[in-house]
Design a protein around this nucleic acid. Sequence first.
RNA 1: CGGGGCGUGGCGCAGCCUGGAAGCGCACCUGCUUUGGGAGCAGGGGGUCGCUGGUUCAAAUCCAGUCGCCCCGACCA
Length: 581
Amino acid sequence: MALVRASQYFLPTWKEEPTEAELPSHKLMLRAGMIRKLAAGIYTYLPLARRVLHKIETIIREEMDAIGGMEITMPMVHPAELWAETGRLQEFGPILGHLRDRAGRELVLGPTHEEVITDLARREIRSWRQLPLVFYQIQTKFRDEPRPRGGLVRAREFTMKDGYSFHESQEDLDRFYRKIYQAYLNIFRRCGLSVVVVEADPGLIGGSESHEFMLPNPFGEDSFIQCEHGDYAANLESAVSRKEEDDPAEPLLPLEEVATPDCYTIEAVAQFLGVPPRKTAKAVFYRAGEELVFVVIRGDLEVNEGKLARVLGRADLRPANEEEIARVGAVPGYASPRGIRRDRVKVVVDDSIPKARNLVAGANRAGFHLKNVNFPRDFSADIVADVALAKEGQACPRCGGRLKVQRAMELGHIFKLGTKYSEAMGATFLDREGKSRPLIMGCYGIGVGRLLAAVIEAHHDEEGMIWPVHLAPFEVLVSVLDPKQGALLESGEKLAQALAESGFEVLLDDRDQSAGEKFHDAKLLGIPILVIVGPRAVKQNQVELERRPDGAKFLVAGEPKAVVEKTTELIGAKGQRASTS
RNA sequence: CGGGGCGUGGCGCAGCCUGGAAGCGCACCUGCUUUGGGAGCAGGGGGUCGCUGGUUCAAAUCCAGUCGCCCCGACCA
């Protein structure tokens, strides 16, 4: 039985808008007394938030258990050597929180748990007969993010559901991946959210294939690109767009040097020579460690530095300066892949270039460009790959439809890891042939606090939150307008008791505050059913029920039986309120 | 890390330009009245003006530094 009296509960609501918050979910959680900030990106969760989090976590546990997941809890503090084994001690850089124990041993605060779970696996898994195994935990993570934002949307300390699976074969991982994909869809649907699944970049976690579950939202911390026909959606950081091939019938013309005074930009050259930017080749320089990288890309496209870093396999990419460019024999503004010191530079050619014919490119001579440059006839490359930034308005790689960019919140991310961690850490098993092989792994994350914020983003209005019944911190709010009148308070107590005995989670607002304040708090808290026990109606032995989502009002007899019946009619009986649809 | 903004009772802010007794609204405490959409009257408590240093007879105010927080970008598991 769940009956909570507001007068004895911790419900510190705010009347005024907090200036520190921009996002609706952030503002509302502060105003409703759900969270309080301790430091940038570090929050205390107050009782009201915990109640909702319990329900969200229950949904996650049910869906994870349904596909064979086993809940565990791993430590939050890890020995740094474990992270050194996979090289991520360096890769994560300043995002890792460090500390030392009394003996001076280095420890890190866990930002994710691939190393820890793989350590467990290498100690415990010996045989294919033990597989597959699926573990998960709901636990606090710390990532010293350079810019926390939006309250729980991107916090430094946050709660994450992270899951890890171990398989004897890629096929078995693929089978499980489809299951968890569906489980994730179930979780977000049960939280009342319609997410878009996008192809994603595995990033620092690694692996071959990954998907993100995105909630479109103008305040989101991430962006994705989506085809108007819905057959392609990908995170903006790894999205590809179609690069049209030039007419193969167009003959390859001979190289020709032309004077192009004061044409330092693609726009200037294209205009001067009367060709569209897409018939030009642009040179872009980067520095990766000691290495200079020369990227050649079609003039109308831009370099996606993330893709480039992945193609090169390095994280320390930065734009090169003029001096560095000149050192390899290139002329800034007129740089060309022809005539540079190939021994001093790595040439990366975007895959737009081989598809194009007779391009205008720099001549490596101030004031001159080359016409009719063709790859590979006129220059060579170390790497040919897609390193272009996909943009709004470009063509879908699948169907050629228009691509659209949307801001979104990344709620979940699933990865096929393969053997990245098992190989690095020596987590092997004996397969059916008795051969020792590295475990095949997958990993799966959901930001639980971010999910809470997302639910509020999706379910609120100007006056406050509007909880889906099965996520609401309470199901019914019984508000006694003037609790100093003993008869009124007694009547409210009786109704609240009856509702609680019938299985509803009830908050009894018995605080001695003005009616207006109570009504405003009721809107703010967004509890689905408000039962108003006021002098006016009670005089006629009536109470009023108000439904939060639409404000619909219902007058019923002020007796427990009638109120319980009407409430049941409005939000369903206990068994029917399960969050399973 | 680059750009912008802000630190003054619990919250929201004014005062700073032009140095001279720390103020306003809300909240809080006491009493009385009031109770159907953020009540009224009366009385009251609470702030080393983020911190450090400097200039000055005198600093919330001017100068230098520093810390914290928010927003945009970079980054992002």
